[in-house]
Nucleic acid binder design. Structure first.
Lengths: 181, 181
DNA sequence: AGGGCCTTGTAGCGAGTGCTACATTACGCT
DNA sequence: AGCGTAATGTAGCACTCGCTACAAGGCCCT
């Protein structure tokens, strides 16, 4: 059982139960090994978590790429709708839940979290730029604008203010009808 | 030493060290009492944290009210600028850091966190409505829009994408120059 | 002064934490 | 076949966790 064999199992456990519950013995159990071996393979817990987070980031990135519809969106509003629909899929929920834990860790200065969070956002932003409408006057700035909106909306939804987020988007210059949100 | 005497000291400790480090013995030490007494006064840890979070929410609300400049903002852009400047004050940093921990707990379903987060956002939204420009065509929807933007920008800043957030706001319909961000 | 409650100190329980020491097995290379 | 390294099991250490049992003070009321 090498690191590469273990990582998917470890990642699945972290996605399901969160980082706060990611202690060595439960992780080892989920990967059908022992805490002893986790330390053996990864050195210490900090490195273990860093590797798991990196693996999850890769998985998330791939899932996002895979879920991208073929045809280009026609408007910024459509971009936001599509992404919010995608990101709120039940299958994406564990990533969302984990994401806020990473943000919290990043804010608190937990080693490795800031790097992980920054990398995820950078990749997401890069991908967002490719999703902008073909005739968009400012795809680069627009992607940043939409990212800000989307993440704000997601946070509000997370804390029970989905309605606030929806009404906020309706009041934005994106206007139109944001079907589904 | 009653509950009311202890709460400010406990809140200070949570603001400084976060919820993850908020275990009974350190909390008790910060409040110059014993873990024994914390359980005696609050029943159990869950209730203790709920009370501390409620106390912190009150404190935050008061601080925000106090920091509001007298004169009304002239534009939505000015509203955003003022709030981001205020919310990024060093004195507000502990609240921000704690906030993401609450959001994470809310997403994970930790008892009490969802209620706390929802209440904070509701209060913030209500306050934001009072801050909208006098001649705003849609202060209610506008407040929700700005809240979404502000929170998205704050999250991006937290994970090291302050620049992304700034450029996103510059590309929004708020346009103008968002001095300071 | 004495009864009764509110408050507090001391000690500890059982479980979980990251990590290590030591020993043994498994396996590839010459 | 023999050697060396990689891989793994077993036990355990020192610590923290939330919480409780027990007992003793302190203080008010009559």
């Amino acid at each position: 059982m090498s690191r590469e064999t273990l990582l998917p199992l470890l990642a699945a456990h972290v996605l399901e139960h969160g980082l706060a519950a990611a202690s060595l013995r439960p992780l080892a159990k989920a990967a059908a090994t022992s805490d002893r071996m986790l330390i053996y393979h990864f050195g210490n817990k900090e490195q273990l978590l860093a590797d798991i987070l990196a693996h999850i980031a890769d998985t998330y990135s791939l899932a996002l790429d895979a879920a991208v519809g073929g045809e280009r969106a026609q408007s910024r509003q459509e971009v936001v709708s599509r992404i919010l629909a995608q990101v709120r899929e039940p299958a994406m929920q564990p990533f969302q839940t984990l994401w806020w834990e990473i943000v919290a860790g990043s804010a608190r200065g937990v080693p490795g979290y800031h790097e992980a969070a920054e990398a995820v956002m950078a990749r997401l932003l890069e991908w967002l730029e490719t999703q902008m409408p073909e005739n968009d006057p400012d795809p680069v700035g627009g992607a940043r604008y939409l990212l800000t909106l989307i993440e704000g909306a997601q946070m509000l939804s997370t804390v029970g203010h989905a309605r606030t987020a929806r009404e906020g988007l309706l009041a934005s210059d994106l206007a139109g009808n944001l079907s589904g949100d």
